Amino acid sequence: MNTADIAEALAADDKITKTQAKSLVDGVFKAIAEAATKGEEVSIPGFGKFKIQDKPARTGRNPATGAAVEIAASKKVAFTPAKQLKDAVNG
């Protein structure tokens, strides 16, 4: 499922145009991305949480040569599903 599919489902459920639904879906994802850029946690009850995790610098290996490579510290966005979502997925 992609954003167009989500927008189409939203349009059908809420009796709005696909263009309006696409705008809403894009707005939600934009808001989540902006919050993540600021380092904020986004919590959606019944769905889950998006939060920023710091990944420390580390030494890795080049798989082609086996040479040691320094991997810089970075941040990643992690998603933790809510219990309701886990339960729905697992039956």
Results as ranks from 00 to 15, higher is better:
residue 54 D to V: 03
residue 65 T to L: 09
residue 39 G to K: 03
residue 55 K to C: 06
residue 72 A to H: 05
residue 22 K to P: 01
residue 1 M to W: 08
residue 66 G to F: 04
residue 52 I to S: 00
residue 12 A to T: 14
residue 22 K to H: 10
residue 14 D to I: 12
residue 87 D to Y: 12
residue 60 G to I: 15
residue 26 D to Q: 13
residue 76 K to N: 07
residue 12 A to Y: 11
residue 39 G to R: 03
residue 62 N to K: 06
residue 35 A to M: 03
residue 18 K to N: 10
residue 21 A to C: 13
residue 64 A to M: 13
residue 7 A to V: 14
residue 8 E to G: 11
residue 65 T to P: 05
residue 45 P to N: 06
residue 44 I to P: 07
residue 24 L to S: 08
residue 85 L to E: 00
residue 49 K to A: 02
residue 82 A to M: 13
residue 80 T to F: 00
residue 89 V to I: 15
residue 46 G to K: 04
residue 63 P to I: 13
residue 71 I to A: 03
residue 20 Q to E: 12
residue 17 T to P: 10
residue 69 V to N: 02
residue 63 P to M: 12
residue 48 G to A: 02
residue 62 N to A: 07
residue 80 T to Q: 06
residue 64 A to T: 14
residue 29 F to H: 04
residue 73 A to F: 06
residue 77 V to Y: 00
residue 4 A to L: 14
residue 8 E to P: 01
residue 64 A to P: 03
residue 23 S to C: 11
residue 4 A to T: 15
residue 69 V to C: 03
residue 79 F to K: 08
residue 64 A to Q: 15
residue 37 T to M: 05
residue 19 T to M: 10
residue 70 E to M: 07
residue 34 E to F: 01
residue 36 A to T: 03
residue 16 I to K: 14
residue 81 P to L: 00
residue 87 D to T: 14
residue 17 T to G: 15
residue 14 D to T: 15
residue 67 A to Y: 08
residue 13 D to G: 12
residue 88 A to K: 15
residue 56 P to E: 10
residue 1 M to V: 14
residue 61 R to F: 01
residue 9 A to W: 03
residue 18 K to P: 06
residue 27 G to L: 04
residue 45 P to M: 04
residue 50 F to R: 06
residue 47 F to M: 05
residue 68 A to M: 12
residue 6 I to P: 07
residue 48 G to N: 02
residue 84 Q to C: 11
residue 50 F to V: 02
residue 54 D to N: 13
residue 87 D to C: 11
residue 67 A to K: 14
residue 42 V to T: 10
residue 45 P to V: 08
residue 2 N to G: 14
residue 57 A to H: 06
residue 27 G to S: 09
residue 7 A to M: 13
residue 88 A to R: 14
residue 61 R to S: 03
residue 8 E to R: 14
residue 54 D to I: 00
residue 78 A to R: 09
residue 6 I to L: 15
residue 89 V to W: 05
residue 3 T to C: 09
residue 41 E to Q: 13
residue 52 I to C: 00
residue 64 A to K: 14
residue 81 P to C: 00
residue 78 A to S: 10
residue 41 E to S: 10
residue 67 A to S: 12
residue 90 N to P: 09
residue 47 F to Q: 07
residue 41 E to P: 05
residue 70 E to V: 09
residue 7 A to F: 11
residue 62 N to M: 03
